[in-house]
């Protein structure tokens, strides 16, 4: 079952410590998973078992995006799982280099 997400929504993994925040998302229903299990709003009481095929890890502060950059998530807490949307793994977006301005 998918869900429409608005920017600022925080999603927690149900199998690891990962938490992500939606920065941009299309206005269509998305199924977001981490470590093979659906992510949810709010931290779970107990963690389920991670799918070993989806255990690449997430890194705090990195942005995650799909191939055509229609959506973007910020990892606000790193963990062991791999994030996927509608079954497709989404990857770390390359950092853009701007000089420090303040």
């Amino acid at each position: 079952m998918g869900q429409i997400f608005k920017p600022g929504t925080k999603l927690s993994s149900t199998v690891c410590k990962t938490q992500i925040m939606v920065l941009r998302a299309p206005a269509t229903e998305l199924k977001v998973t981490c470590g093979g299990a659906p992510m949810q709003i709010g931290d779970p009481d107990t963690l389920g078992e991670i799918d070993s095929a989806a255990a690449g890890g997430t890194f705090v502060g990195k942005r995650y995006t799909d191939q055509d950059e229609s959506m973007e998530f910020l990892c606000t807490r790193g963990g062991d799982g791999t994030i996927a949307v509608d079954g497709y793994t989404i990857d770390v977006k390359a950092a853009k280099k701007l000089p420090s301005s303040d």
């Binding site: 920017p7 920065l23 853009k96 301005s101």
Partner: peptide
């Protein structure tokens, strides 16, 4: 909050 966060996300990489 949204204005300031947009500025930070647009110009700074976390822990860079």
């Amino acid at each position: 909050h949204d204005n300031l966060m947009a500025y930070i996300f647009g110009t700074v990489e976390f822990m860079s």
